[in-house]
Design a protein around this nucleic acid. Structure first.
Lengths: 212, 212
DNA sequence: TAGATTGTTAATCGATTAACAATC
DNA sequence: TAGATTGTTAATCGATTAACAATC
């Protein structure tokens, strides 16, 4: 662990991207200062919580004025690690995979998808968004050679674990998993499960509550 | 509020879909009973927490044996409102919109997308996955006529709020928002923000931590 | 100075974990 | 009965909120 790394609480970390999103908005509107109250409104949280979250990693506001927009934006980018370009592999060039490849928001976050993999013979060797699709069989080799640390899994659930195993073997340290299964990986690998259907379930639950 | 509705704590509700996912797995494997320990492992939480979450809405396990898989699955479906078919409108038939239209997991969750909207003249009137694409101008009218309560927003961020306004006016009560902006809606409308880029940010943060 | 807004301490609230009795 | 596992109470932990002094 780096000696000066700040331990950001789990829940703070989940809110920071919401603050960052609003900060970008402020930058676009060329605002110089922003108050915790304004950030709170945009992120739908309490203003005290915003201040507390921000002081957590030493962001400095000015009493009576607020926070310097550019300074705060840059600080958030540091904390969230957005200044580093992260080269990533994407496995599973189906509909969702393609949507992600083309999604315009990701490059802002420093995500650069440099290698595509699939096991469909009719896709292998073709180009998608200017990137060649390789066979999954070459995955271990190519990821190692490119020294990639980040991978995105957009394959059907039943293949996800075996893909993850190969990714880990190839040296991948962060997996963004869109397959609706829990992945079993070593402790030094982080997995973020983006379970879309799970989100749907909670939405419907609330809907049922309202309807009653 | 329904008199017999159980107030499920916020964090319990977020875990239930993970349990449900594993339960489906158990059903597929034709298991009759499952222990809180097994569920906990799959969902990466504590076994006591699983039991506590389950007792919260009266799920009954058998000491020394575990929970009946089919019974528990059915109970979770009730709580999560998955037994109701929810007809939904989808606005924005871009790449992400199409990925969602075709995503195979959603119909399991009772999501039935019955109306597509876009403002691209070259798309309007065409068919996508057997469904006709209508103009956004007709949205208010069509959603009202179909009495839809659920809508999915997959338009660029700058359009999302104005689309949401129309949806609310048309009687939509639950919005699944994939645009990277916070939506401002009345209290009786629930919004679930599926901010993909935000998820990315937290992943990268952990990655930076590990790398240090 | 008066008004606005931050930063921090203390109080509250809710979620998680530990311990263990109850039960199949 | 012995082993396994649930359900629940009490203890701990951490997050949120309230209050207010400090500062521009």
């Amino acid at each position: 662990m780096a000696s000066d790394s700040v331990k950001v609480p789990k829940f703070t970390l989940k809110r920071l991207p919401l603050y960052y999103r609003y900060l970008r908005n402020c930058v676009d509107r060329k605002l110089e200062f922003v108050s915790s109250e304004q950030i709170a409104k945009a992120a739908q949280v309490n203003a005290v919580q915003v201040r507390k979250d921000l002081t957590m990693f030493g962001a400095m506001g000015t009493p009576g004025v607020g926070y310097n927009v550019l300074e705060l934006q840059s600080k958030l980018e540091d904390i969230l690690g957005l200044n580093n370009i992260n080269e990533a592999a994407l496995v599973g060039v189906g509909r969702l995979g393609r949507a992600i490849i083309d999604y315009p928001g990701f490059e802002r976050y420093g995500l650069n998808i440099v290698a595509l993999f699939d096991n469909n013979p009719s896709l292998i060797g073709t180009q998608i968004a200017g990137r060649q699709v390789f066979s999954v069989k070459e995955m271990l080799h190519i990821i190692r050679r490119l020294k990639l640390k980040v991978a995105i899994i957009t394959v059907p659930g039943e293949w996800a674990q075996s893909i993850a195993n190969v990714l880990v073997e190839a040296g991948i340290k962060a997996i963004w998993n869109f397959a609706p299964v829990s992945l079993d990986v070593p402790e030094d690998v982080v997995v973020r499960n983006e379970d879309l259907a799970a989100g749907l379930a909670t939405l419907f639950h609330y809907l049922a509550e309202i309807g009653s």
